[in-house]
Write a protein that binds this DNA or RNA. Structure first.
Lengths: 133, 133
DNA sequence: CTTGACCCTGTACTTGATACAGACTTTATA
DNA sequence: TATAAAGTCTGTATCAAGTACAGGGTCAAG
């Protein structure tokens, strides 16, 4: 009984990772080199699909490729430590919080600037003045 | 009476734009090519400093280089329209709002994941399970 | 047998800088 | 005045995280 295999196009459709991105993840070391058909086509297994979905989910949550490499490295150890994964996640949470707070400041500034604009067609635009500080 | 001129290092210090970044902005078309000394050194004027500070401020507020090119294009017209500037700013505001909302969703997911983790050293990490979806 | 769809590799492009190599110029110090 | 140090010049490489070709080989259907 053979294991099911998929071509790159098939695994791409199956996981939602774009065709070229799959190759990119292989080159980036997130996906181990697959088996190849006699003519050199990559042959992906079910396990690769799971891994790709994991990577995709992590990317959606903003983990960097290098974060994901760390996470997968931890996972790939037969005996991993839950605390290690938690640590990576906590750093990510702090990062997201920081970004939200930065963006809120930026938003406030932009809205203040925009509010001063009489929405007219005149010159001496108050937005420009604010931008020149 | 000569106008004051600055070298790249001087204008960099004066505006807070890093040395190499000044050259980059020139290449990117945000800063017009400056006058040159006999030996080929760039000579910046007061006007360039104003322009660089404007660019820097825009970047701090997250405007892209191409946004800034647009803004400067509008400003450089002798007769600009305040509404045009307002339009660019409004798009930027919408963009920032979108990013904040995306990041909030991400944060919630990350925190939910992390909250399930018993912070222990066990296996079957609930964060991993959540990441595999 | 040929057409079209798929896959292969390697490379270039994107954004917004940053950094370096190797050469030249200017300034400061001895 | 000589020389060393600091500054500037150009062109190119690097980063992240892909995306998009070009120029080939391969596979299935008609």
């Amino acid at each position: 009984m053979q294991k099911a295999t998929y071509t790159r196009g098939q695994i791409s459709a199956k996981t939602g990772c774009k065709l070229e991105t799959v190759r990119y993840y292989e080159k980036a070391g997130l996906l181990p080199p697959t088996a190849r058909s006699r003519s050199g086509y990559r042959l992906y297994a079910e396990e690769d699909a799971r891994r790709l979905r994991f990577i995709r989910r992590c990317r959606e949550l903003g983990f960097s490729i290098s974060d994901i490499r760390d996470l997968l490295g931890i996972v790939d150890k037969r005996t991993y430590n839950c605390a290690d994964i938690r640590a990576v996640t906590q750093v990510r949470i702090a990062d997201v919080k920081g970004k939200i707070s930065d963006l809120k400041k930026i938003l406030k500034t932009l809205e203040n600037m925009s509010a001063k604009c009489p929405s007219g067609t005149g010159k001496d635009c108050p937005i420009l003045e604010a931008l020149e500080k």
